[in-house]
Design a protein around this nucleic acid. Structure first.
Lengths: 194, 194
DNA sequence: CGGATATGTACACGGTCGTTTACCTAGGAC
DNA sequence: GTCCTAGGTAAACGACCGTGTACATATCCG
């Protein structure tokens, strides 16, 4: 029986489903971490957004840092390496521009860079899951150096677009920067070839 | 008389010098904001590093946000616009590489990007004090677009060097990226010229 | 010299946060 | 049907933080 006076009744009883609950927390964390960063995301906020009791965050992920790490582990950037090499620039740019939450993971890491532990987790993720595979995918000559250049370009673009947004990055000028980004990206991919 | 038992004596009495105190707080704030970011820098920390009572931060700057803004206002990037155009790339890169705290201001803003109020102050500063003057200095064609490109390049480099440091950015590879950065920067400055 | 005031100090308030504890109960095992 | 445990809830703890207040005193002006 659902009573309107909360002082006379217990909560209606949430459906019990561990996987669903865990997934809901993870999804909420992804959203909040990538918009507010680690420090400004509270476990109570995450729980509220997930529609879940806040103590469950501790139960499922051990700690806030554990939740952050789990959010990182969930990421999968391997689709990037399925793109055609000769169209990498345009395709990559299109992905970032057209899917509104594509920059999420990077924003999450940048916004959390001030927290030592979250920062360490981010650096490790970027290194192991992005840069090393990217360098391998680029191949010789100097795959690592070219991976670093790509990282610089894209970190810079994301930073200047979402984090400390340049007012200049709108309309026709955004389109111009977009073409520049495509060309630079493609040039790095093609470097040393033919 | 300096007593070893603090319960039996008052503090020795600090020299009174408003300007010096204010400057000490500002210097400490610059250091901490640019290494830990806004959220992870406490007013007590700043005061301790400055060797000053923590209530003085409030007295001199009103609030923590006021302190952050004052730290921003102190910055002066006009020397950048004194550089020779045809050597802008190499000189600019040299400044960043050789003076160890040159990236400080940008690091401070990026690390504080998660705090709405500090973020707003940073964006306003970047716009008014950096991008608009830079666009004007670059001149036609499309000074604003080229300023945006420079911003992307340098934001990206700083991010990948200091914030989420790429392990690949060391030794010979760092030198290679450095040359690339010089060339790209110079190309943007020269764009459309002769 | 004797106040007046700018400067510095000590401390507590209210709030938020991550985490932990103690308890409840839905729902499957038998 | 009964137990038992995984899943969920409520509340509190201790720590930290930004800020405000009440008080002390060095320094300067008359």
């Amino acid at each position: 029986m659902y009573i309107s006076d909360p002082s006379e009744t217990k909560r209606p009883a949430r459906q019990r489903d561990a996987e669903r609950t865990r997934a809901a927390i993870l999804a909420a964390a992804r959203t909040l971490f990538s918009t507010r960063g680690y420090a400004h995301t509270g476990v109570r906020e995450v729980a509220d957004l997930a529609g879940v009791n806040s103590a469950l965050v501790g139960r499922y992920f051990g700690s806030k840092l554990g939740l952050f790490r789990a959010t990182l582990e969930e990421l999968d950037i391997t689709p990037m390496f399925q793109l055609e090499r000769h169209r990498f620039g345009v395709t990559m740019v299109a992905v970032f521009f057209d899917s509104p939450d594509a920059p999420g993971p990077l924003a999450m890491m940048l916004l959390s860079a001030a927290d030592p532990e979250a920062h360490a987790a981010s650096v490790e993720f970027l290194h192991k899951k992005v840069l090393i595979p990217l360098a391998r995918w680029l191949g010789p000559p100097d795959g690592e150096g070219r991976a670093a250049k790509l990282s610089i370009l894209w970190n810079g673009f994301l930073t200047s677009w979402k984090l400390l947004p340049l007012p200049a990055l709108t309309g026709a000028r955004l389109a111009s920067v977009r073409r520049w980004l495509e060309a630079e990206t493609q040039a790095i991919v093609d470097e040393g070839k033919a």
